[in-house]
């Protein structure tokens, strides 16, 4: 194999272009997974949420706009789940217990949203609330009122739900924080509850 000067220059240009594309595709070599990218994007540019109608465990209709002016923690679940959702429920319970009582409801609320709205009717949502000690007021369990709006809701949050072939689902479980302006501002890991709660103090 002989390499001339022109070949070397072309090869160097290809390599530079390659590095540029890889860097662009991984946010400067920081986000190699879609999940990491989603978290970075939300931090850099808080996302508006769609006006999706929700129905809670008591059949009450509401929307994200009803939480304007308050901070809202959102998780996505399905009530039959007993693996990662169990950790999610436990994490949410821990958040509820860590947030000062005077902030609950007035300044901060929790919302668990089911992505299995056909099966998860209000009685099932109520049962889930009971399992994790959600009071149904400051921590509501809800489903999209119109199952047709589920896809738009998940897309806005960047949540991907995959059937596991055994009747259940796998999903990128996380704790989502919606700011007082109604925008998705932060996404945290389930096991980072302390940091999540500490971060609430910094939210304006």
């Amino acid at each position: 194999m002989r390499i001339g000067g022109r070949d070397l220059a072309t090869t160097a240009a290809i390599a530079l272009l390659g590095v540029a594309v890889l860097s662009w595709g991984s946010d400067g070599f920081t986000a190699f997974t879609a999940e990491a990218a989603r978290r970075r994007q939300v931090l850099a540019e808080p996302r508006p949420l769609p006006a999706v109608g929700l129905e809670d465990q008591d059949g009450r209709r509401f929307s994200f706009a009803d939480y304007a002016g308050r901070l809202l923690a959102v998780e996505f679940v399905y009530t039959r789940c007993d693996t990662v959702c169990y950790s999610l429920g436990a994490a949410f319970k821990q958040i509820r217990e860590s947030v000062p009582a005077h902030r609950l409801g007035r300044d901060f609320a929790l919302l668990s949203v089911s992505f299995d709205p056909v099966r998860d009717d209000p009685p099932r949502l109520r049962e889930y609330a009971g399992r994790f000690g959600a009071d149904g007021v400051h921590w509501r369990i809800a489903r999209p009122a119109d199952a047709g709006e589920l896809a738009a809701l998940l897309a806005a949050f960047g949540v991907v739900v995959v059937p596991d072939g055994l009747g259940g689902f796998e999903h990128n479980a996380a704790i989502h924080l919606v700011g007082r302006d109604g925008r998705l501002r932060r996404i945290a890991d389930l096991d980072a509850v302390d940091a999540f709660v500490a971060g609430l103090e910094r939210e304006t």
Partner: peptide, 21 residues
């Protein structure tokens, strides 16, 4: 860019499509 250029293009492109993202 000769064999080296072709190999470089193949290496970068295949690496990109290995990213989980």
């Amino acid at each position: 860019g000769g064999p080296l250029g072709g190999l470089t293009a193949a290496a970068f492109t295949s690496t990109y499509w290995m990213l989980p993202r």
